[in-house]
Design a protein around this nucleic acid. Structure first.
Lengths: 224, 224
DNA sequence: GTCTATAGGCTGATAGAC
DNA sequence: GTCTATCAGCCTATAGAC
């Protein structure tokens, strides 16, 4: 952040600028999530934001620049949501809390998740450095801690890297593919309900904890 | 299929038509998977197919019609890949085989998976009837069989509907978000390798079978 | 059936009045 | 800072020669 931007934030002009940028980015996130980068038009973003099209270009210059601002914000959100975990933590509590945090994001920011998913499906041309940089490091650090827990006998031996990947897959699917699950479950308006997220969260936590030997083996019913 | 189409298939003209349609649809699947419907241009599809743009419209009329043909083919592929399961089958074998079949699709037809994912992210405007129809019925039938197995004590009690959803999430993520996993794993060209799919398949099978009480509880190592 | 040329409409971006 | 008017380029789709 430059000193000029800091100065702007402290006066009124800077505040208006910040608010307008935020308003446009919020509209852009919605439109981009539904149509992808190339499929979205600046006109539809302007309409969603309730502003003339020229204002979009006044604040962001190009469509590409606006898109990058939206994606960057999402990447920040993703990274900041990664709760710190430490060697001394309890495995079951830590894993369950992390799954709950990811599901909370899927519920509260589904459009952000879809923008990110869109970018990945297209081969991630704009976030390659994030994937191979910050994200790769994060996975390596966290799986190292999980491996320590396994060494210490605090949880059963599992493939910790795939464990993390599959937690992401199971939690993000409830945002990215909401319409599929809502349709199959027969929900009205093809939207998931509060209880659907709760039930999914419990199912994922149970699956992961059993996988790690942190829940007792479920007993089978007596056969008929 | 009309009788006219059947007649055409039997003569030379019909064969050429079929081959050209297939060639265009294959190119379209690739382009649509990377750019979505609105982001894809008929020009780029024509170039990918090695044909003049006008031929696309000669065979499919409109871009929308071509897209629907591609999506319909994928829906058929998805449904036909759903292996039949019966009440008398062995749970562990059946679940493992199903996961292997889904992973085989993720490996062999990643672009088809991405076209489908794109459609879901956008709210599935064109496959709503499939989701709420054939797919919903399929899930209900299969989860009913899994519930029978639970009743019979052949596997532990689990939320069978979410079990199916999460199997899809874990298997399809390896096609849809390949670039993310390949980047985090540090693979060259951001493409997954044969062994990555094998390792992922094993991880998913282990996770699901442990969840269903079909694998012994993993033993922890002796604590330090 | 194939392909070039082009119509007609939409898109990103900007100029310039206020 | 805001907004209308508009340009230049790209897009889908088609006409019409071969």
């Amino acid at each position: 952040m430059t000193s000029k931007e800091i100065t702007e934030e402290t006066n009124n002009q800077g505040r208006i600028r910040q608010e307008n940028r935020k308003r446009i980015m919020s509209a852009a996130e919605k439109v981009f999530s539904q149509n992808g980068f190339r499929g979205s038009t600046t006109a539809s973003i302007a309409e969603e934001a309730g502003l003339p099209k020229a204002n979009i270009h006044y604040y962001f210059g190009t469509k590409e620049e606006l898109y990058r601002a939206v994606v960057d914000e999402i990447v920040d959100l993703w990274l900041s949501s990664f709760r710190e975990i430490h060697e001394g933590d309890d495995p079951a509590t830590t894993l369950a809390d992390y799954i709950r945090a990811k599901m909370e994001l899927s519920k509260s920011r589904p459009e952000a998740s879809r923008v990110f998913a869109n970018e990945l499906i297209r081969g991630a041309p704009r976030i390659q450095s994030y994937l191979a940089g910050d994200l790769k490091k994060w996975v390596e650090q966290k799986s190292a801690i999980l491996d320590k827990w396994i060494e210490q006998g605090k949880m059963a031996p599992v493939d910790t890297t795939r464990l993390i990947f599959h937690i992401w897959a199971m939690t993000q699917t409830w945002a990215d593919f909401e319409v599929q699950w809502a349709s199959v479950l027969g929900r009205e308006d093809n939207r998931l309900e509060e209880q659907d997220f709760e039930q999914a969260t419990n199912s994922i936590i149970t699956t992961v904890l059993r996988n790690c030997g942190l829940l007792p083996l479920p007993e089978r019913r007596t056969g008929v």
